[in-house]
C-alpha cells in the first residue's frame, strides 16, 4: 500500500466534488443563519432588559465554551426524543448557524460599540431621528468594521463543516472517507480533501486580510 495512484484520483474526484457541493451548501446556509441569529442575539443584549441580556450572555458563553461536535450530536440525538426529526444536513446547518451566531453576535456588538460615543451625541445635537441616526451615522461606520470579522467566521465555518460527517452528512470529507474505506486507500482522498480546503480557504483568507487592512483594523 501507499504511493500515489492517479487512476484512483480520477476515479474518486467526482465523488469528492459532489461532497464539496454539500460542504458549500452547509457553509452558505449556516452563514445566513449565523449572520441573522447573531444580529438578533446582539440586539437582544442591547435591548436594555436586564434579564434578557443576562440570559443571552449566558447562552452565548455556554455555546462558545462547548464543542460544536457535541452540539451537533445534541441536535441529532436529543431533538427526536421530543418528536422533532431533522435531516442530517438540517441539523448540521442549525448546529453551525447557532454556534457561529454566538461569535457573530460579539462581532456586531464590537462593531456598534466601536463607533465613538461622540457620534451618537453629534447626531442627537443635530436632532436626527433615531432611525436616521442608525441608517445614516452608526451603521455606515459599523458595517465596514464588521465585514472582515464576519468573513473570517465564514472561512472557519467552511473548515468546520466536516464535523457534520459525524451525524451522517456526506460532505467533502465524508465523501473522502467513504471513497477511502471502499478501496482501503486513504492517502489520495484525504490529501485531496486537504488540498481542496487549502485551495479555497487560503485565497479567501488573503482577501479578508486585504479587506481588514483597507478598513484599517
Amino acid at each position: 500500500m501507499g504511493g500515489w495512484d492517479w487512476g484512483f484520483v480520477s476515479q474518486i474526484m467526482p465523488t469528492l466534488l459532489r461532497g464539496l457541493l454539500v460542504t458549500f451548501e452547509a457553509t452558505l446556509l449556516g452563514s445566513v443563519l449565523a449572520f441573522a441569529l447573531g444580529l438578533v442575539l446582539a440586539l437582544l443584549r442591547r435591548a436594555g432588559i436586564p434579564v434578557v441580556s443576562r440570559l443571552v450572555w449566558l447562552f452565548i458563553e455556554f455555546v462558545r465554551s462547548t464543542p460544536l461536535l457535541v452540539q451537533l450530536y445534541f441536535l441529532f440525538f436529543v431533538l427526536p426524543d421530543f418528536g422533532i426529526r431533522l435531516s442530517s444536513l438540517t441539523a448540521g446547518v442549525i448546529g453551525l448557524g447557532v454556534h457561529y451566531a454566538c461569535y457573530t453576535a460579539e462581532v456586531y456588538r464590537a462593531g456598534i460599540e466601536g463607533v465613538p460615543r461622540a457620534q451618537w451625541e453629534a447626531a442627537t445635537a443635530l436632532s436626527l431621528p433615531r432611525h436616521r441616526t442608525w441608517t445614516r451615522v452608526i451603521l455606515p461606520q459599523a458595517v465596514p468594521r464588521v465585514l472582515p470579522a464576519l468573513g473570517n467566521y465564514v472561512i472557519s465555518m467552511f473548515k468546520e463543516t466536516p464535523l457534520l460527517l459525524a451525524i451522517g452528512v456526506i460532505d467533502l470529507v465524508g465523501a473522502a472517507k467513504e471513497a477511502g474505506a471502499g478501496a482501503y486507500r486513504y492517502v489520495e482522498p484525504y490529501t485531496l480533501a486537504g488540498l481542496l480546503f487549502l485551495l479555497l480557504s487560503y485565497p479567501a483568507a488573503v482577501l479578508v486580510r486585504r479587506l481588514e487592512r483597507r478598513v484599517g483594523h
Binding site: 473548515k159 466536516p162 480533501a193 486537504g194 480546503f197 487549502l198 483568507a205
Partner: peptide, 14 residues
C-alpha cells in the same frame, strides 16, 4: 488553511 478534521484523518489514516 485546511480543516482540522481532515488533518486528523490524514495523520491517523493516511
Amino acid at each position: 488553511g485546511t480543516s482540522e478534521v481532515v488533518q486528523l484523518f490524514w495523520i491517523y489514516f493516511a
